[in-house]
Design a protein around this nucleic acid. Structure first.
Length: 538
RNA sequence: AGGGGCGUCGCCAAGCGGUAAGGCAUCAGACUUUGACUCUGACAUGCGGUGGUUCAAAUCCAUCCGCCCCUGCCA
């Protein structure tokens, strides 16, 4: 019996299957503009395009849509390439729209020759004013009927640098009365003497996205150009350029789907840049950032991000998924491989009154309870230890499974202890707890017969090491509505905690710690980051 | 004189005329050296509303309501 899992196909995929049945090679592309560091949105688009390509025996191209020299930089393409490698997204070619400038220009010339493009000397303001509004048609430019021969010369002059920046533009001659605004004689080329990070000063005219993108797809033989829904309005233009300017083989087609928004996650490049510029975060790969670099330092496995994106699927409906949806996959992927280490964030001191003063002992504990092959490490136990504040309650609710006055609890990997006395200072604040331990309850060799309330983790006081804890930016987690005034707010919270020395030996490749109900990730500088969906205890 | 898109469980999402998949979240239980993990069970007489067509409608038609995108020489 074949266990055929019910598989759902979205509309894009159905088209891909039909195309393939007609003998078409499936070629997709992920086309970021190298103007910022890659974030989860980029990953999502890349994963989707990569997924189609690999599933249907095709391939993916990584193409830098670098048609605006004002914002682009090589460091962003490096970051993108890096992110793709980390995510395991394999592309056949790394292409640049800027490599097509000459071909693109030739196609523009072709359009001029056909009388389908003209040089417009109106100012930007005039062009904007005559484009009409959403409910009224635009007006034809006075330059709209210049002859092809004259336009040819003018376009050559534009390229040759005979006009100052912004003096004129090349426009496609389509329909100033179209209900679809992008079709109202869109600009194809603008003059800007901006040094391009790859072509330098070679060009003083640069193609617009709409013109360059579809034709770059055509040049690369892209079969399915999948992008986000905001380009829906541009599809008729995409098709128009391909139909009139492309003379080669193949007809790329664009498919749109909605972006994947994540709750409490600021994706706006503008805000993220501001966090970096103003020092609110350490940089683009600060663990609090929703960038690929940030998630990587936070300890998210690439496989979790990929599975998350695939699980969310594709649709055209606006969607925002809760952060815990992502974290579910992170947890799932981390659980079998993450090394468990105890970390105490809000220390409460415990004195084990019947434990010998000055003595410490080392106890072995599994690196990962699910995986024996992961080995063990040693933890220290002694007379003074710290437990987490949330693991102790003076007035425990019914069913409390941690420590409380008079209660017993197992110290994970060590002994069972009983809380004998809560010691407070004059103000009533707890200074420490006095507990006694059961000598014969040692982990792995428990002869005490005691059934403790629950199990909690701890850190021995003399061997524990302080670490820094960066809480998430409240800004990044306070909701999708981000008030600008809050951006300057000092929101980075650091405080000392105690952790086992063992953390220092953890390699960057295995950055995750397990504490109670969630994971903590460790970045390069052995800074702990509270992350990955700590669940609330009951 | 507007054009385009979208509305199926709290959140994603299948479904494409034959009687509402799945995942997250949640709840209940089992297990447990962390209340985690794992496992078991529960969870839309309902598909934005209203009419219609049909033996049969989330699926077709009409109409209404709501939300999103488009007036860069950005992508």
């Amino acid at each position: 019996m074949e266990n055929k899992e019910k598989e759902s196909l979205n509309w894009i995929e159905r088209d891909i299957i039909e195309s393939r049945a007609r003998g078409q090679k499936i070629i997709t592309r992920f086309p970021p503009e190298p103007n910022g560091f890659p974030h989860i949105g980029h990953a999502s688009a890349a994963i989707v395009n990569f997924g189609f390509a690999t599933k249907y025996d095709g391939y993916l191209n990584l193409r830098m849509d670098d048609t605006n020299p004002e914002k682009e930089d090589m460091k962003y393409v490096d970051a993108m390439v890096d992110a793709m490698e980390w995510l395991g997204i394999k592309y056949k070619n790394l292409f640049f729209a800027s490599d097509y400038y000459e071909q693109l220009y030739d196609m523009a010339v072709g359009l001029v020759k056909k009388g389908l493009a003209y040089v417009d000397f109106q100012t930007a303001e005039q062009i904007s004013a005559t484009r009409g509004t959403l409910t009224t048609a635009g007006q034809d430019s006075p330059y709209r009927n210049t002859t092809p021969a004259e336009n040819l010369k003018l376009l050559a002059d534009m390229r040759a640098g005979k006009f100052p920046d912004g003096h004129c533009v090349l426009r496609a001659k389509i329909d100033m009365a179209s209900g679809n605004v992008p079709m109202r004689d869109p600009v194809m080329y603008r003059i800007m003497r901006e040094k391009h990070y790859r072509t330098g000063d070679k060009w003083c005219i640069y193609p617009m996205y709409d013109f360059a993108h579809c034709l770059s797809d055509a040049i690369e033989g892209i079969s399915h150009s999948c992008c986000s829904l905001e380009f829906d309005n541009n599809r008729p233009l995409y098709d128009w350029y391909v139909e009139h300017a492309w003379t080669g083989k193949g007809r790329p087609r664009q498919f749109e789907f909605s972006r994947l928004n994540i709750e409490q996650t600021v994706m706006s490049k503008r805000y993220l840049k501001r966090f970096v510029d103003e020092g609110t975060v350490e940089g683009w790969d600060d663990p609090r950032m929703p960038t690929i670099g940030g998630m990587r330092r936070r300890g998210y496995p690439a496989s979790a991000i990929i599975e998350f994106v695939r699980a969310m699927g594709l649709s055209r409906a606006p969607r925002t998924v809760p952060l815990n949806a992502l974290e579910f996959y992170v947890r799932t992927h981390l659980d079998p491989v993450a090394t468990r280490v105890a970390v105490v964030f809000d220390p409460i001191k415990i004195v084990i009154t019947n434990y010998e003063t000055g003595k410490t002992e080392k106890l072995p504990i599994a690196n990962n309870p699910h995986d024996e092959t992961a080995g063990t490490h040693e933890i220290n136990f002694g007379r003074e230890i710290y437990i987490d504040g949330e693991d102790f309650s003076v007035n425990p609710e019914k069913g409390w499974k941690r420590l409380s006055p008079g209660g017993t609890v197992r110290l994970r990997g060590a002994y069972i202890i009983k809380c004998d006395r809560v010691v407070t200072d004059k103000s009533g604040k707890i200074t420490h707890l006095e507990c006694s331990y059961y000598k014969d309850s040692k982990s792995g060799n428990d002869k005490s017969g005691i059934k403790p309330n629950g199990t909690i983790h701890f850190v021995e006081s003399t061997t524990g090491v302080p670490i820094t804890v960066n809480e998430y930016l409240p800004l990044l987690h306070s909701g999708t509505a981000l008030a600008e005034e809050n951006i300057n707010k000092e929101s980075k919270i650091t405080h000392n905690a105690i952790a086992e020395p063992f953390i220092k030996t953890i390699k960057h490749g295995h950055p995750c710690q397990f504490v109670r109900k969630g994971f903590f990730a460790l970045d390069k500088d052995t800074t702990f980051i509270k992350t990955v969906g700590l669940r609330e205890g009951k």
